[in-house]
Amino acid sequence: MFRAYFNAPRRRRRAVVLMSLICTIVVGAILLQPSNPLPLESRYQKWSLEGEPLANWSGPWACVEDQTTGLLWEVKTDAENIRHGDWTYSWYSNTASRGIPNQGDCYFERDRCDTEDLIRRANKERWCGLDGWRLPSSKELMSLLNFSVKPGRPKITVEFFPHTQKANYWTADFNARLTGVYAQFTVGAMALSFGDGRQSALPYQSAEFVRLVNSNQPK
């Protein structure tokens, strides 16, 4: 029956065309299978605690290099270690002889914590293979602000900076004149909120969060 059906040359030719079409579809289906997503380009580069570079989707990481500013930033954890994101610090500088020590809350110091404690420990432990850790200036810290975040999130790229609080982070800028309810304390240091992206001057004894920065990059 089939032989009779395909006896006509025109039908044979058309059958060949049809079969070719079907084969093309089958081969196409195999070749065009959707591939897995790939990481996108980013201004940020992850670094391990030992100072090794990591791909965008790898982890855990301890530092992030901002390739637009050249600064290296500390990354917080929830491991109850020194880099724990919930610890707070009062603003204190030994070198400037300014601020008030030991008014923040953390587990890693016998007394309570201040910014000098964190800087000392970071440099001693050489996070990401570096010393030179310090408080960022207001301008440096503001470079991390990101307003295109999902509703209700901190104003920072949380995919690279997890455990960031929607609260104030200390900057290195001090001797700022205090106003309003803080006027009685006269001067304090500047802080930046990743909750709303606003800057404010706060008394040194305020217990606020800290993200350290380094001007050097891991080798």
């Binding site: 990481p39 996108l40 940020y44 509703p151 790229t157 995919e159």
Partner: peptide, 14 residues
């Protein structure tokens, strides 16, 4: 978002 391995389109948590 470059750092997120899983893109969730319109899904979000409050």
């Amino acid at each position: 978002r470059p750092g997120a391995r899983r893109y969730t389109a319109g899904y979000g948590t409050d």
